[in-house]
């Protein structure tokens, strides 16, 4: 379903983030991208999300060559298919929980009721609806994380990408996140988590662990 075909990415300052990486992900898989910071795993996520275009090679998702799509379609693809949980959450602090979660849906100009229903579903799922009108900057770390996850799910995406999701969490919250991950896995979404947190490497519901080092795949 997701295919990286001999992908290389060199940034403007000539750093080589990825060097001839080829990967395949099947639908419904939960994959952990293992590697230290700077190894290139975040770049892979960005490429799959269409946030970056590869310097060489092709990224194909669901038979769509997203690396070749013009921005207009790329963003649309991202909106329709991807839910991204960022390392720093990237929530907008002055907006409320509800508003933040609704953001991906704003350009769709949905009916008030439809929007409301979608929001309710996802807020309930991640147990954040009791704080829906509170400004994000006033939330605790765990609540912010759940908001970020809710936002990533509000458009019911096929693919969920998480970049170092537990980097800023204590053990209790990390375990909570893993529980959420388990729940998401059972909904047949393709999930890719980039992390160097060892908590993830031994989980039994993980399908694969792929290791990246210095922009190259480490054969296992």
């Amino acid at each position: 379903m997701i295919k990286l075909d001999h992908v290389s990415k060199i940034y403007a300052n000539n750093t080589v983030a990825l060097d001839d990486v080829s990967l395949n992900f099947a639908e419904g898989e939960l994959i952990i991208l293992k590697g230290v910071s700077g190894s290139g795993k975040s770049t892979i996520l960005s490429l799959i999300a269409g946030l970056l275009k590869p310097t060489q090679g092709d990224v194909v998702v669901d038979a769509k060559h997203i690396s070749k799509l013009p921005d207009h379609f790329c963003s649309q693809y991202r909106r329709d298919n991807i839910g991204f949980i960022f390392q720093k959450y990237n929530l907008i602090p002055l907006l409320s929980v509800k508003e933040n979660i609704a953001l991906p849906l704003v350009p769709l100009n949905l009916d008030e009721d439809v929007l409301h229903v979608k929001l309710e579903i996802v807020m309930k799922m991640f147990r954040i609806e009791h704080k829906k009108d509170m400004k994000v900057k006033n939330l605790s770390g765990g609540e912010q994380q759940r908001t970020a996850i809710a936002r990533a799910n509000v458009n019911d995406p096929k693919i969920i990408l998480a970049d170092e999701p537990t980097a800023n969490l204590d053990e209790k919250l990390s375990l909570e996140f893993i529980q959420i991950l388990k729940a998401l896995k059972s909904s047949h979404k393709t999930i890719i988590v980039a992390t160097h947190d060892p908590l993830f490497f031994e989980l039994e519901f993980v399908d694969r662990v792929v290791e990246i080092n210095n922009g190259k795949l480490v054969c296992s």
């Binding site: 999300a49 921005d71 991202r78 909106r79 704003v106």
Partner: peptide
């Protein structure tokens, strides 16, 4: 940053 976030979650340039 905010614009970056918006684009990352799927806002197109036109939006």
């Amino acid at each position: 940053n905010e614009i970056g976030i918006l684009k990352a979650i799927g806002w197109r340039i036109e939006d």
